[in-house]
Design a protein around this nucleic acid. Structure first.
Lengths: 246, 246
DNA sequence: GGGCGGCGTCGAACGGATTCAAGGCGGTCT
DNA sequence: AGACCGCCTTGAATCCGTTCGACGCCGCCC
């Protein structure tokens, strides 16, 4: 079942939406049975927010937990001197804003219009009591996220500019696969500046790298905010620092 | 109670060691009562390993979970081209190697001789069943680690070389504080190369930065692998990118 | 239509960190 | 002692990515 389908099923009940939402594949609700879904859907709200809205800001009291049902989001931290570091991007099915800390440790903004499932922290805590599987699931997701962030640390810390951009493109493929879909042309709704802030580069360097890839025939950008990877092997080799020994 | 005390209490039973081990302050066992500690101590083993031993390697099946009772460890990932990225350092009381994945996602090596508490994964899973607080604790620790790793991403991605070294020194202070101790002279058992691999720099750059700090009177290195921060304010300002507007 | 602002691309010059190379210091082994 | 090795420091040259400037494209609003 494609997680995007939920969007097209407008006049249905909450339960059915929950049943089909992306979170059943990748997210929080994955291990829940019908009864639990019923309960969680009664306590959660679904909202649609426009592109570029802020879900929450760094330092806000962490009172809610969100699941991205459809759309793309950006998580970032701000430095005192105004520079920002994007700590991650989020895709359909991903959980956003769960933390055991008192306040959110980063900003969360939408890159596109998005459908979001919103749940009060205290309601989630009550659900955790009732469904221990849910706590286990949360731990799984946290470990996954931690591993991904460590991987990103390797990318930012030890790879050349072009290798970072290559690694970023591959992470888009991985995210697509995680959602269970597998299209040729990927959505890439982030700007060059967003990508640069994710990779620890400037937007000019990102732009130049992508131009270089295009000239080498490795990628195509058929539309604004879309990429197709034409030579995944070359991109992978570059990402791994093997230059172009092909 | 100082977590280091356990080391000096040689001829005592396991229970008492557990009772006094660093993990009671910072680590996994923090929320457990006497009965649970009793049980966990019966199932866990304490070992002392020499400096530079490998606890596990990236890709090894994740069959055990470790708690560092005393000593220092380094977690790192290796790139195909041989460069390494240190993803974190671990201190007394820290848990190492808990993951819901099948295999460890990084190498774990000791920097010093260390006392380690070792527990089988399946025994831990059984304990998780019995003591739900433990699962919650694990989630807390994971969230903390994730937040720290994101912070490190900001450091590596957006700060200048000297600012990164300054941030690293401050993280040593934070770790010292987390352990509940508060000395002037900090232990810094990692080499310049380790620090460089943590910060995404070269060892020469780290060396030059520390020399610069020393010449400015910001730090002192009274002994090999020891630092004292003499001007925390200046170091903090630099870490935050405020140059030296003082 | 014209103006404007956001976004992307590109060239030239610059600069911070790396690379390369040499040397010092403190251990340990023979 | 002397030789060796790991680790650290320092200097000089180099290079990769940034900075700065200019321009093109597109959509939006007046």
């Amino acid at each position: 079942m494609n997680p995007f389908d939920a969007a097209q099923l407008a006049p249905e009940t909450r339960v059915t939406i929950c049943d089909r939402c992306g979170s059943r594949i990748a997210g929080l609700c994955q291990p829940l049975d019908a009864a639990a879904l019923d309960e969680i859907s009664a306590e959660s709200q679904q909202v649609v927010l426009p592109a570029h809205s802020t879900i929450f800001r760094e330092g806000d009291p962490a009172g809610k937990v969100f699941t991205l049902i459809e759309g793309f989001a950006k998580l970032s931290r701000l430095l005192p001197d105004g520079k920002q570091q994007v700590v991650g991007f989020r895709f359909a099915g991903d959980v956003i804003g769960y933390t055991t800390l008192g306040s959110y440790p980063f900003d969360a903004e939408l890159l596109t219009e998005a459908r979001i499932c919103r749940l009060e922290r205290r309601q989630l805590d009550a659900l955790l009591q009732r469904y221990p599987k849910l706590e286990r699931r949360l731990l799984d997701l946290c470990v996954q996220e931690l591993t991904a962030t460590q991987e990103q640390l390797v990318t930012v810390g030890r790879r050349s500019a072009e290798a970072r951009v290559a690694a970023f493109l591959l992470s888009l493929v991985a995210a697509e696969r995680r959602r269970g879909t597998e299209r040729q042309v990927l959505e890439m709704p982030m700007t060059r500046a967003d990508i640069a802030d994710f990779l620890g580069l400037t937007l000019e360097t990102v732009s130049r790298s992508l131009t270089a890839f295009r000239k080498r025939g490795w990628i195509r950008e058929p539309l604004h905010h879309r990429v197709e990877l034409l030579d995944v092997a070359a991109i992978s080799d570059l990402a791994e620092g093997l230059a172009s020994e092909r």
